[in-house]
Design a protein around this nucleic acid. Structure first.
Length: 512
RNA sequence: GCUCCGUUCGUCUAGGGGUUAGGACGCCAGGUUUUCAUCCUGGUAGCAGGGGUUCGAAUCCCCUACGGAGUACCA
């Protein structure tokens, strides 16, 4: 049976999306596009108390930055709307009621205190699973233990109640996961999860199944944290009579902290020295800012490339992939099973690869933006030249103002180590001649300035190697950097002259 | 505790009965370069442990250990 692929990414708007969520979205997206399918975004906001203002907008912006364009979403609804669960509220109750009707679910009136007391009791009795299940439900206040009249009376009196699923006592539940193969669980270890909360909202479990069914979702690709509740979901599909159209599951390995200990969480950001969010997030309550990869200077291409290779690989040795290539090569079968530690060094390497391979003109546009934020004036022509000189030497474009500030201003400080070692009487003597010679040049390019320097050096019988670093320090203030001749060409002859002049006046000569 | 999932260099991973266990990041060394970086060359380092099955196991099975997730009127 060939069915058109429909997948969804269903985040909960409780804050910013972290990179694990982004990767889940990416894998769903690749899978949809590769199979000519549809990619849906659905907001799962059934817990109204945890809704965070700005979260939906953040999710949208973050995914867009990565290059994900949903086919159907709250922002561009398709046929299966609405795409926000709180707006679908009325849909869910019907199915919950249907299950109650069929004896597959029931009403429960237990208070949080009573539930807690039940768990305590079980703990003391050294019972393994502290659950609301086939055994314990017989001791609780629900429509299975209470008389029909009493249930009715309690409901009419406005007493809060929930609807719980009635999990069979002895049944093996099997599900096939594309990543993990067959997973078998005994129903006794599941508990009678709440389907409808007392506020009338469904829980994740119900809403998720109902929506996936109604939206025609064919593949559920989500994080491994959902694997333990997947059997419950299967049971729900069976109960609702939707087993035949049940989607296929693929549970993705978790992204772990760099030390491999524990799932990477939103709180790990910054604490570990790197971002865990795609783009910056400002907490609307506290105003606290969490850094994002975008603001750190990552290009979306590098970020996406890196993230896509966390828990998936194409089976060959290629590592640099464009978005289209990722889509083309992606397959669920090649997702790895084991959890994956996050390695920021590799992420940085990816960014550098992309930087290196981008045309100077493209980089110039971005650089101009960075420079203007730093209050540095720069022409597009100059920016392009600087980008060309610096792109292989930095990991992020935003390092340029600091690493190559000499392009914009005469150095105020000079590398003390180089000065101490290389700023010799001989060098100063040669530079005195060189700076004047420079002013007489008509054609001032990297090549001609090199010729000129060589000429002066030859006349004085001094080797190039002996004075190059000193000259570099005089012109740039730094001990390292791009080709000095190219720098001088960019600076122009007057500036070169003035800088050498200044250095000669200010720097202490070695041995004097 | 219980249930489920997992385990190949420090990290990301290839490899699915016969391989000198391959690649990438990182790290180290050498070369190139006027310098730093890039680049090139080389090096470092791994099948969690124990039992089976087999002529032969990183690969298949079992056990143990370790790690992770779940165990809410959160998703």
């Amino acid at each position: 049976m060939e069915q058109k692929v429909r997948v969804r990414f269903a985040p909960s708007p409780t804050g910013p999306l972290h990179i694990g969520g982004v990767r889940t979205a990416l894998f769903n997206y690749y899978f949809a596009k590769k199979n000519n399918g549809t990619f849906i975004i659905r907001l799962e906001d059934t817990d109204q108390t945890r809704f965070v203002k700005g979260a939906p907008e953040y999710i949208k912006e973050a995914l867009e930055w990565c290059g994900i364009v949903p086919d159907e979403s709250p922002w561009n609804p398709g046929e299966c709307g609405p795409y926000v669960q709180s707006e679908r509220k009325d849909l869910y109750e019907k199915y919950a009621l249907q299950l109650v009707e069929e004896g597959k679910a029931y009403y429960a009136f237990d208070t949080p205190e009573e539930l807690e007391a039940m768990r305590e009791r079980l703990k003391e009795a050294k019972v393994d699973n502290l659950q609301y299940n086939a055994i314990t439900r017989t001791q609780m206040k629900n429509s299975l233990t209470l008389s029909e009249q009493e249930v009715k009376a309690r409901m009419e009196a406005g007493e809060p109640y929930v609807i719980r699923i009635k999990v069979p006592q002895k049944e093996e539940i099997r599900l096939h996961d594309i990543v993990r193969g067959w997973v078998k669980v005994h129903s006794f270890t599941l508990d009678d999860k709440i389907l409808m909360k007392s506020d009338g909202m469904p829980t994740y479990h119900l809403a998720n199944i109902v929506d996936d069914h109604l939206m025609g979702v064919t593949h559920v690709i989500r994080g491994e944290e959902w694997l333990p509740s997947a059997p419950l979901h299967v049971l729900l599909y069976q109960y609702l009579g939707w087993e035949d159209s049940m989607p296929q599951f693929a549970h993705l390995p978790l992204i772990l902290k760099p030390n491999g200990k524990g799932k990477l969480s939103k709180r790990d950001g910054d604490k570990l020295g790197f971002s865990v969010f795609p783009i910056e997030w400002k907490d609307p309550e506290t105003g606290e800012i969490s850094s994002g990869f975008r603001e750190d200077g990552f290009t979306p291409e590098a970020f996406v490339n890196f993230l896509s290779l966390l828990g998936w690989n194409p089976g060959n040795e290629q590592e640099i992939f464009s978005f289209d290539e990722l889509t083309e090569h992606f397959s669920l079968e090649r997702i790895v099973k084991a959890g994956t530690s996050f390695d920021i060094d590799k992420a940085r390497w990816f960014n550098q690869q992309y930087l290196k391979n981008k045309p100077d003109a493209v980089l110039a546009t971005e650089l101009l933006d960075i420079l203007s934020k730093e209050g540095i004036d720069c022409s597009p022509e100059l920016a392009e030249k600087i980008a060309g000189q610096m792109k292989e030497r930095v990991t992020f474009l935003k390092e340029i103002p600091k690493e190559a500030g000499f392009f914009f201003a005469t150095p105020e400080e000079y590398d003390a180590k180089v000065v101490k070692k290389k700023w010799t009487e001989e060098a100063v003597h040669v530079f005195g001649q060189f700076k004047d010679a420079v002013l007489t040049m008509d054609d001032f390019t990297a090549d001609t300035v090199k010729e000129k320097l060589n000429t002066v050096l030859e006349e004085n019988g001094v080797g190039l190697g002996k004075v190059m670093q000193a000259l570099r320090v005089a012109v740039t203030g730094k001990g390292g950097g791009p080709d000095l001749m190219a720098i001088m060409e960019i600076l122009g002859k007057q500036e070169v002259h003035d800088r050498i002049q200044k250095a000669i006046e200010e720097l202490p000569v070695k041995g004097q």
